[in-house]
Amino acid sequence: MPDSIASLQLSSVVLPLENPVSDAKVLTGRQKPLTEVVLLFAEVTTTDGVEGMGFSYSKRAGGPAQYAHLCEIADVAIGQDPSDIAKVYDSLLWAGASVGRSGVATQAIAALDVALHDLKARRAGLPLAKLLGAYRDSCRVYNTSGGFLQASVEEIKEKATASLEAGIGGIKIKVGQPDWRTDLERVAAVREHLGATPMMVDANQQWDRARARRMCRELEAYDLVWVEEPLDAWDAQGHADLSHTFDTPIATGEMLTSVPEHLALLEAGYRGIVQPDAPRIGGITPFLRFATLASQAGLALAPHYAMEIHMHLAAAYPTEPWVEHFEWLNPLFEERMEIRDGRMWLPDRPGLGFTLSEQMRAHTVATASFGSPRG
C-alpha cells in the first residue's frame, strides 16, 4: 500500500514578545503595539511513520481564526498521499471555499502545506532547499527586530552593532512616522553609524502616493538597499510607478495573501523587490508558483519573516535574495540558524531542519488531533 497521511496534530501557540514593538501603523493610530505572535503548528505523521512539521502565524489578530479554519477542514487530508502536496492543497482549498482563497483561509492551510514539504524532504534525507534544487548554501542576511520605532536612535545603533558583531550583514529600520522630518533624522543618524553597511527602511504602508514620492526622493541620498512598503500593500500601480521613478529599489509584497494578489504587481509593471511570505501567501506550494513567475520577470526576492522556512526558499531562487533575520521564534525550536560573515547558512539537517521545543509546548493554548497515529 502507498504511504498516506495517517494523523495530524494542530497546535495554537501564543508567544509573548520580550518587549512590545511599534511600527508606523502604531504611530499613525491604526494598530496597537505588538506584544505577541500567535502561531499555528501542524504536525503530520504517515502510515509509514514519516513525520513533518510546519507553521503559520499571525500578528495582532487572526490566530484563533487560522486555527479554527484548519480544524474544520483538516480531516480532508487524512488518507491522502503526502507526496501529492498540490492535490492535498487544492482539496483543502475546496473544503473551505465558502470563505475564499486568500487571507485566513490560505494562511491556515499554509501550516499543513509547509509540514508536507518538510515531510517530503525528511523522507528524502535532504534539506528542503536541496530537494527543491538549491542555487546556493547561504544567503545575505539582514536584521529588522532592532529597528522598530519605539526604540531611540541610540538603542537602534546599539542593536545594530550587536547584530553586525553576531555576523549579520545588513540592518533595516522602520520609518513612516507622522512627522517625516523625524524619519529623515533617524535614517541619517543610523546611516552615519553604519557606514557602508547595507541598510534598508520600511514604512509599513503608511504614506500616500504624494508623500511616498517625496520621501523616496529624499531617501535617495542614503544609498539604501530598498525602501519597503511606501504605499498601501494593495496599491500595485503605485508601487510599480515608484519602482520606475527612483534608483533606490522599492520592495513590497509581505502582506499579500494569494498568488493573484502578487500577480497584480507584475501586471502593473512593477520592477522592484518582491517579498512574499510563505505562511501568508498560503504555504510553500503557492510561494513557489509565484517565485517562478517573479524570476521569469527578472525580479529580486527578499522573503518576509519566518527565516526557518524562507532560508530554504531563498536558496532555491535563481538570483541571490536577502533573508530577514528575526530571533523572535527562537524559543519554539531546538536548533538555531547559522549566521556568519554577513550570511545565513542553509541547515544540513533533513527537511526544514527544526524540531519543536518544550517551550513551544508550554506556550500551546489549544490542540486538536485528526486520524490515527497508526493509520
Rank of each mutant, 00 (worst) to 15 (best):
A6M: 00
S7H: 04
L15F: 05
L17F: 13
S22T: 09
D23A: 08
A24E: 01
A24C: 03
P33Y: 01
T35L: 02
T35I: 11
L40C: 13
F41K: 06
E51W: 01
F55D: 09
S56R: 13
S56Q: 08
Y57K: 08
G62M: 06
Q66N: 13
C71I: 04
D81C: 03
P82F: 00
D84V: 00
A86S: 11
S91R: 15
L92P: 10
W94C: 07
A95P: 03
V99K: 08
A105W: 06
P127F: 03
G133P: 07
R140T: 06
R140Y: 11
N143R: 13
G146T: 14
A151K: 15
S152M: 09
E155C: 04
G169T: 12
K172M: 12
V175R: 02
R186Q: 13
V187E: 08
E192H: 12
A196D: 15
D208V: 05
A210N: 11
R214G: 08
E220C: 10
E220G: 11
Y222K: 06
L224Y: 14
V225Y: 06
A240Q: 07
L242I: 05
E254T: 04
M255A: 14
L263C: 12
E267H: 11
D277M: 02
P279M: 05
L288E: 09
R289N: 07
R289M: 04
L293F: 04
G298E: 02
A300N: 13
I309P: 06
A314Q: 04
A314G: 15
P318H: 08
P318N: 04
E338A: 14
I339S: 09
D341N: 15
G342F: 04
W345Q: 09
W345S: 07
L346H: 04
R349Y: 05
G351E: 04
S357D: 02
M360Q: 15
M360A: 14
T367W: 04
F370R: 01
G371Q: 03
G371H: 05
P373N: 12
